[in-house]
Design a binder for these strands. Structure first.
Length: 357
DNA sequence: ATTGCTGAATGG
């Protein structure tokens, strides 16, 4: 174990700008993989050539299935699925049913700024991902490298995390983790930088949304380092083969980091060893708001993790996803959100406009 | 080809 740690440390220290992997699919995944939830018209050249008189029809998706089953079957909910739902459940529903609206200029600027911040500490390396197993292997490797960077250099960005919250698999990317200066504390602080188009202070709804996001990350990080990662459940839930042989491309990427792995299970072992060495995160979380125009600081918002508030929020969001109830509309005080929503014209909350006496 | 499907987040 000491050897593994030494190897990791050496690798991370040597490769000054830490390596990460940009997952880019060269080709669609193998034809019969369970990816196409909505098996549409796309070319499904799966073995059997002709469709005979009584082909094994794809199971028609029964109505009344939960959104979780329909849109996130055998997949994890993203942390941003949680926050998008908290923002407006009806809008989340529209996005699932009708697809994402076009990205705004503000969103593009935000993405660019985040890429810039990431580049300050991370060098991206492209690897081709051919399967779900390889996707997870890369996620684990990026976690290992990022966590080691945090401990050695005091900071890391865009760190992937995953785990189970209130019974549901979740996945997310921590914007930033930073060790406190000196020996003040051994516990890293979670930070999220929000860029703003206008120099106005963030609304309460935005801050609440950001709090929820950061609490998701803290929960996932603390659970990973607490070594509660349910490996057996992980492989079966995502239908992964632990013994899947990684491609030479991926193996080479792993070797760049001083490790040697042939299978996804090998990678998971390194991951577990790394998790054992990491400290819990601080109870204090930080949202940092900056102006897109000049990156000037608009507000720094420090707040505390609140386990019971967090649990309630997650349960509320999950009850929507699980179909326990219909989507809720925004509250009267937050009706202003509708003016930013692409689906406002089709939304029942605005039913008065279309039908007049 | 930044968003789609099948990356998670981007902002309000």
């Amino acid at each position: 174990m000491a050897l593994i740690e030494a190897a990791l440390s050496a690798a991370v220290a040597a490769a000054r700008p830490v390596l990460s992997a940009a997952a880019r699919r060269a080709a669609p995944l193998s034809c019969c993989a369970s990816y196409s939830a909505a098996a549409s018209s796309s070319s499904f050249s799966c073995g059997s050539g002709d469709i005979e008189d009584s082909p094994p029809l794809p199971i028609p998706t029964p109505r009344g299935q939960s959104l979780l089953a329909r849109f996130r079957g055998r997949r994890a909910l993203a942390v941003t699925d949680i926050t998008a739902t908290e923002w407006c459940e009806k809008q989340m529903e529209f996005v699932l049913e009708h697809g994402r609206p076009e990205r705004t200029q503000a969103m593009k600027a935000g993405s660019e700024r985040h890429a810039q911040l990431e580049q300050e500490v991370i060098e991206r390396v492209d690897v081709t991902i051919r399967s779900a197993e390889e996707m997870w292997a890369v996620k684990f490797m990026n976690f290992i490298v990022g966590a080691n960077q945090l401990m050695l250099e005091g900071i890391t960005r865009e760190l992937p995390v995953f785990g189970v919250i209130e019974g549901s698999w979740m996945i997310g990317v921590i914007d930033e983790l930073q060790m406190p200066p000196d020996g003040v504390s051994l516990h890293p602080i979670l930070v999220d930088t929000k860029t703003r188009y206008k120099p106005t202070p963030p609304s309460e709804a935005q801050k609440r949304n950001g709090r929820l996001q950061l609490m998701c990350y803290k929960y996932l990080w603390d659970n990973l380092i607490g070594e509660k990662f349910p490996a057996e459940n992980f492989f079966s839930y995502f239908d992964l083969d632990p013994n899947y042989l990684l491609s030479d491309d991926i193996k080479q990427f792993i070797r760049l980091l001083g490790l040697d792995a042939k299978t996804l299970e090998d990678v998971l072992k390194y991951f577990k060893v790394t998790c054992h060495t990491l400290p819990r995160s601080q109870e204090q979380l930080l949202l940092r708001y900056e102006l897109q125009a000049d990156h000037s600081l608009l507000e720094e918002y420090l707040f505390s993790y609140d386990a019971s508030w967090f649990k309630d929020q997650i349960q509320e969001v999950l009850s929507f996803w699980q179909g326990a109830r219909d989507a809720k509309f925004v509250s009267e005080e937050e009706r202003w959100k509708c003016s930013f929503c692409k689906f406002a014209n089709n939304c029942p909350i605005n039913a008065s406009s279309s039908r007049c006496c």
